[in-house]
Simulated assay, not measured.
Amino acid sequence: MSRPGMRSGRFQHRLRETLLNLAAAGGAVCLIAVVLAVAFNITLILFKTGSMSPTIPAGSLAVVREIPAAEVKTGDIVTVDRPGKLPITHRIQNVEPAEGAARAITMKGDANAEADPAPYVVERVRIVLWSVPGLAYPLAAVANPVVLGATTVCVAALVSWVLWPRNASRRGSRRKRGHHAAA
């Protein structure tokens, strides 16, 4: 027959183990994502406007990879950097050679009636690999410094709770009866 205290102890042990395993898995996913991002030049883009709707609606998160502009073709969705302005992500309408490795790219948002006013002359672009609608808002919220600080405190508390020595009084009573605690 098990005692109520033993059930509670087993539950706490399982809870600690489960939370620690989840934290370890989350950390491993983060490390793998960083390695892949660096190795394959991958970044994330958050869509604030609906100029690419319905293909990529506002609030979407897109995974993009930087490539030479010479590799793009009509129909690709790419992000180009604009000096002094935010980057823009639209579908390529036309690609023409420019000076050196640069390309003059005419783009248009899927939801826009007309193409962007002037071609973008670029040597490198970021091509959209895939996107997830609605994921930009939660990701932006998590990037808030208050949320990051609270997450850090919670993870530190979890690790402390999991690794904190347990049952000091119990170990002392075992030694008195002749049992040895494992080192």
Results as ranks from 00 to 15, higher is better:
residue 20 L to T: 08
residue 6 M to G: 12
residue 105 I to Q: 03
residue 132 V to H: 02
residue 40 F to K: 03
residue 153 V to E: 11
residue 50 G to P: 11
residue 123 E to Q: 12
residue 168 A to L: 05
residue 176 K to F: 13
residue 48 K to Q: 13
residue 180 H to L: 03
residue 172 G to S: 13
residue 133 P to D: 01
residue 23 A to H: 11
residue 85 K to Q: 15
residue 35 V to G: 14
residue 40 F to Y: 10
residue 165 P to T: 14
residue 176 K to T: 04
residue 169 S to N: 11
residue 68 P to F: 06
residue 37 A to Q: 03
residue 56 I to S: 04
residue 102 A to K: 10
residue 2 S to D: 10
residue 50 G to L: 05
residue 21 N to W: 15
residue 133 P to Y: 02
residue 106 T to P: 08
residue 22 L to G: 07
residue 168 A to F: 01
residue 72 V to S: 08
residue 79 T to P: 05
residue 126 R to Q: 10
residue 1 M to A: 15
residue 166 R to Y: 01
residue 132 V to C: 13
residue 130 W to A: 15
residue 158 L to V: 12
residue 18 T to M: 04
residue 15 L to M: 09
residue 19 L to K: 04
residue 145 P to T: 10
residue 63 V to M: 07
residue 93 Q to T: 09
residue 69 A to V: 02
residue 124 R to D: 14
residue 55 T to S: 11
residue 82 R to A: 11
residue 73 K to T: 11
residue 47 F to S: 11
residue 121 V to I: 14
residue 10 R to N: 06
residue 70 A to L: 03
residue 171 R to C: 13
residue 90 H to D: 10
residue 67 I to M: 05
residue 40 F to L: 14
residue 139 L to T: 10
residue 149 G to W: 12
residue 89 T to K: 09
residue 137 Y to S: 14
residue 112 N to H: 03
residue 77 I to H: 06
residue 19 L to C: 08
residue 132 V to Y: 02
residue 151 T to Y: 00
residue 91 R to C: 11
residue 98 A to L: 06
residue 81 D to I: 13
residue 72 V to K: 07
residue 168 A to R: 07
residue 114 E to N: 12
residue 178 G to S: 00
residue 163 L to R: 07
residue 4 P to R: 10
residue 152 T to F: 12
residue 67 I to V: 09
residue 39 A to Q: 05
residue 11 F to Q: 05
residue 13 H to A: 15
residue 93 Q to W: 08
residue 67 I to R: 06
residue 5 G to S: 13
residue 15 L to I: 08
residue 182 A to C: 05
residue 88 I to M: 01
residue 87 P to Y: 00
residue 150 A to G: 12
residue 176 K to P: 06
residue 64 V to R: 09
residue 143 A to N: 11
residue 148 L to W: 01
residue 153 V to L: 15
residue 88 I to Y: 06
residue 56 I to C: 03
residue 65 R to I: 02
residue 11 F to I: 14
residue 75 G to T: 09
residue 124 R to E: 12
residue 98 A to C: 00
residue 153 V to D: 11
residue 114 E to A: 12
residue 35 V to L: 13
residue 61 L to A: 05
residue 167 N to C: 03
residue 18 T to N: 12
residue 132 V to D: 02
residue 166 R to K: 04
residue 126 R to E: 11
residue 167 N to A: 13
